[in-house]
Amino acid sequence: MKRVLPGFGLSMGVTLTYLGVIVLLPLVALVLRGAEIGPERFWAILTAPRTLAALQLTLVAGAMATVVNAAYGLLMAWVLVRYDFPGKRVLDALMDIPFALPTAVAGLALSALFSANGWFGALLEPMGIQVVFTIWGVAIAMSFTSIPFVVRTVQPVLEDLDTQYEQAAITLGAHPFTIFRKVIWPVILPSFLVGITLSFARSLGEFGAVVFIAGNLPMKTEIASLLAVIRLEEYDYNGAAAIAMVLLVIALLLLVVSNLLQARALRYKAKP
């Protein structure tokens, strides 16, 4: 086939090389590093109580943040697409703040809000709810930095979803809940899955925002990536690499699962 634009070979070469150097090479180095450790030592590092506690906290808090983001993000996307109200564009722009804001700034702001003399903390502490230095704080920080993923993946699909589908369903006798369940949901599900997967993956890797609010108590509020940093500072390269390997494997698994689910949900699209 004759291509309209020239330079396929060049542009493809540049992008592949860049991808290799910036993304793949460090990953390979990490895996090689991990492989040097040897299975027994690797296992010992992973099953150390402090590592397990950190991984567990990261996964549980990440899951909590993702559940909240899934519900809130879907609602937010719906509101931004389906309703017109004053300030809609401002709200739309605000949704990108977590992406643009340095995570450390977010962490500082959140810990100031939730500390005992902050606006929220002053309300919550008397009720016996402590956020700072607990898993709740970790989850809130994770949620803050990863919410745009759900909104920004669902929003364009909702925008493309012509209201004619709903109108057709109405004339065929379907009521609102049925229309959402049978007509709207199946169409936005694939992108919704991508959104929550990305949100979860980002939550697992969140560092800057979390360390300010978590208190970082070993065995309690210490997240996995922080533990990797600590090991590195202790010149324990093997310990750091082992933890990083686990995070890498989880992230890759998430991507695979997300793509499989997506392919299944999108099986109705025409094959070329």
Partner: peptide, 18 residues
């Protein structure tokens, strides 16, 4: 509209894609 039983055919058909 749900109770009118009108068969509406849209210009671009609006077939449910999934």
């Amino acid at each position: 509209a749900q109770d009118r039983r009108t068969g509406f055919v849209f210009q671009h058909y609006a077939l449910f894609p999934h």
